[in-house]
């Protein structure tokens, strides 16, 4: 009957095609300069001229993003579990977390490069540094939100601190951690792109984009931008799939059609 009306995949495809068509038409009809906006067809052909160049750079940036986020997650879980257990410490750490959150990293990247040196160390530091606050808030909030009745149940048989953390608090924090992860994939990607361009690294999408700007290569710039966007989408999908699997018990993952 009207099943095609409910097909999310179908409509997403139609939306994508429409977007590309309008974009292409707009650039051609208005005769927009390459540097300002490149039509999708030229982005595709630029990519196909040297696909290896873009794929290598995507791979480099993806590594910076994933390793940076992993470091941030490990730091945040350790730090967050501590803050969730000790309230004064949580209050004391607020200024630092807020400071990280509000300070524009564009402003202090050169100081980081001066401190940690050019290339990977500075890039990884920036990605981890800016994504820590959201992970910490998610950890603390999620762990605090563990069902009080379940906590008493654990206490009634003298569960160890480790058992409470591993079997109750950490799983309780998973939903908020995934929300933070989706946010942090975007933030971390932006930080990685920017740091690659600013940290005098030799590769990565950010560095490719910086050089394209320096040499006034509009088509390379826009192909790099689209590759970065594709990486971002890939990251979001990866988080979403991990979430589907790990949170299959959670209300957010339930099918509502019954």
């Amino acid at each position: 009957m009207n099943r095609w009306r409910d097909s999310a995949a179908l409509w997403a495809t139609i939306g994508t095609i429409a977007l590309l068509a309008i974009w292409e038409a707009f650039v051609r009809i208005r005769n927009v300069r390459k540097f300002v906006l490149l039509p999708p067809s030229e982005i595709a052909s630029t990519f196909l001229e040297t696909p290896g160049f873009y794929i290598d750079n995507i791979w480099v940036t993806a590594r910076h993003l994933v390793i940076g986020l992993a470091i941030a997650l490990i730091v945040s879980l350790t730090f967050g579990a501590l803050l969730a257990a000790v309230r004064p410490l949580e209050h004391a750490s607020q200024p630092l977390l807020v400071l990280i959150l509000v300070t524009p990293w564009v402003a202090y990247i050169s100081s980081i490069v001066l401190w940690l040196g050019r290339g990977t160390p500075s890039i990884l530091f920036l990605v981890s540094f800016v994504t820590v606050p959201a992970f910490v808030y998610a950890t603390v909030g999620g762990m605090r939100g563990a069902d009080p009745a379940a906590r008493e149940l654990f206490a009634s048989i003298d569960a160890s601190r480790w058992e409470v953390l591993w079997r109750l608090r950490l799983p309780s924090a998973l939903p908020s951690l995934f929300t933070a992860a989706r946010f942090n994939v975007g933030l971390g990607l932006a930080a990685a792109y920017f740091a690659e361009g600013a940290a005098l690294s030799t590769d990565g999408l950010g560095e490719a984009g910086r050089r394209a700007v320096a040499f006034n290569e509009g088509s390379i710039l826009w192909t790099t931008i689209l590759c970065t966007a594709a990486l971002g989408i890939l990251g979001q999908v990866a988080v979403l799939m991990l979430e589907r699997w790990l949170l299959r018990w959670h209300a957010s993952q339930r099918r509502t059609t019954r």
């Binding site: 069902d147 009745a149 379940a150 008493e152 149940l153 206490a155 009634s156 048989i157 003298d158 079997r167 109750l168 799983p171 998973l174 949170l247 018990w249 959670h250």
Partner: peptide
């Protein structure tokens, strides 16, 4: 409680959703 001498049944079922 260290020796697990109680089986507690709390007011809410307190099941772990995962």
């Amino acid at each position: 409680s260290r020796r697990k001498r109680f089986g507690l049944v709390p007011q809410s079922p307190a099941l772990l959703p995962w």
